[in-house]
């Protein structure tokens, strides 16, 4: 068993354990970065192994396209085993840019909390080649294991506290409230989760407190005029 991150109480933007570490340790890749979609809708990198990993992610943020975004939208892994021979028609600008880097293979995995997508793990390799089925299973499990933490870290960076919220995914009411809000707002659970966090942030309350109110029926987002535009 890995330690439970004794640094969880530390302050500041330094993260107790780099979230990309397990990917480098368990998968045949040379670099990794972890990023999440923030409450404000922007992308925030919470963990990166090296300059190339950061550069690949930044390129995609700047261009607004690439495997990173495809993984986010499709909620499925996007695998480019050889960037020099791959079809880049889905991301032409990134395709041109990536072949000029040292990266020879790039892989993006959605970070999911249940059915909610909170971000992406971007991996790269300096030599071309596929990931095996075993690698894919590992990557999916590793992504599941860090998704809650990644979202919490991003929230902590945004307001300087609350790092422990959502860690370990034990908060049943948060997940239940997310499902309820998806129905009330007639949107996806991913959007509903963003709304839940946004509401908590704007109201200066914890996600847990707001979730409890939603499950108890005290708070109902049905026909909320501010919500109809988010779909």
């Amino acid at each position: 068993m890995v330690g439970t991150g004794s640094g969880a109480g530390a302050s500041g933007p330094l993260h107790p354990d780099p979230l990309h570490a397990s990917f480098l340790a368990r998968l045949p890749v040379d670099g990794a970065s972890v990023s999440v979609v923030t409450v404000a809708g922007s992308h925030s990198t919470v963990s990166s192994s090296d300059a190339l990993a950061t550069r690949l992610e930044q390129l995609q943020f700047d261009l607004g396209e690439g495997p990173h975004y495809r993984a986010l939208e499709s909620r499925k892994p996007v695998l480019v085993a050889d960037v020099r021979s791959a079809d880049h028609s889905a991301w032409p600008m990134f395709g041109q840019a990536v072949v000029q880097t040292e990266a020879r293979a790039v892989f993006s995995f959605p970070l999911r909390i249940g059915a909610v997508t909170v971000g992406v793990v971007d991996l790269h390799r300096l030599s071309p080649g596929d990931l095996s089925d075993l690698d894919l299973a590992h990557a999916a499990a590793l992504a599941g294991a860090i998704a809650g933490k990644a979202a919490a870290y991003a929230a902590a960076d945004a307001d300087g506290e609350g790092r422990d919220e959502l860690v370990a995914g034990t908060r049943r009411q948060v997940h239940q409230a997310t499902g309820m809000m998806a129905v009330q707002l007639d949107t996806s659970v991913t959007d509903a989760f963003a709304r839940l966090r946004g509401h908590a942030y704007a109201a200066g309350r914890s996600v847990d407190e707001v979730a409890r109110d939603v499950v108890a029926g005290v708070l109902d987002f049905t026909d909320d005029p501010t919500d109809s535009e988010t779909a």
Partner: peptide, 20 residues
């Protein structure tokens, strides 16, 4: 980990059913 992920999805699905 898959089992734990499934459990989270079950909670989200329960929320959907409860609201519906």
């Amino acid at each position: 980990q898959r089992a734990l992920d499934s459990r989270v999805i079950i909670e989200q699905a329960k929320g959907v059913i409860a609201a519906q």
